[in-house]
Amino acid sequence: MAGGHDAHVLYRPGSSPMHRLAPEAKLAATVAFTVAVVSTPREAFWAFGGYAVLVGLVAAVARIPPGWLARRAAIELPFVALAFALPFLAAGPRVDWAGLSLSVDGLLGGWNILAKATLGLLASLLLVGTTTVRDLIVGLDRLRCPAPLTQIATFMLRYLDVLVGESRRMRVARLARGDDPRFLWQVRGFAAGLGALFLRAYERGERVWLAMRARGWTGRMPAGLSATGVATARQWSAAASVPAVAAAVAIAAVVTA
């Protein structure tokens, strides 16, 4: 039952200006910042330093300590394996370093992935560290994400803990009856449990739907549930300042490259 997705593990409660900022402004700013970062030419090393300073400033405003960020940033390691493989796999001129023959293009490409993935991840962590899951969905809703999608996401997040708890109990029951699988060909018990989990999830969905119908559900969330805390013009401009600086850095990097 490992897996790094414990539902609320990335949120860090607080009352900093970042926490109080409206979620739609934070979401839009994070996406814009990430786009600016990934659009920067990889040779513009100074630009990535600039982005790192920006991330540091936002973390300071959000009162998120660097250690907290660093520990959670470690989840990216499996995803950037490619960055460490590229110097060996890439074509083109090569350099010798400590007895290894590395591709220059691959080194630059690896640096490119490592820098951009890390900065993007840090921006995401600052967003989820200061925004509750419910607010993230509200933010998506206000950014005109189709309502059925945000509704599905809402139901998913609401029932995720229920299903995870259910699967945990099924696993304990399985182990208590002497199931101790070690090899792939012993997964029958695991997979049968997964089937049972689907049946329970689907039937729970049917019961939830019937209960909602009984309370007047027509396929639309009642208006006014998320009417408070809409971003003001001041909040929008405050949130926009970070991606604006990032965009300026990116444009400067593209021009000088």
Binding site: H5, P148, Q151, I152, A153, T154, F155, M156, L157, R158, Y159, L160, V162, L163, V164, S167, L197, F198, A201, Y202, R204, G205, E206, V208, W209, M212, R213, W217, T218, G219
Partner: peptide
């Protein structure tokens, strides 16, 4: 109108 609860639960199942 079953889309949100049903797909939501199936998505939770996929996630789990």
């Amino acid at each position: 109108d079953r889309l949100a609860p049903m797909a939501g639960l199936v998505a939770a199942f996929v996630f789990a």
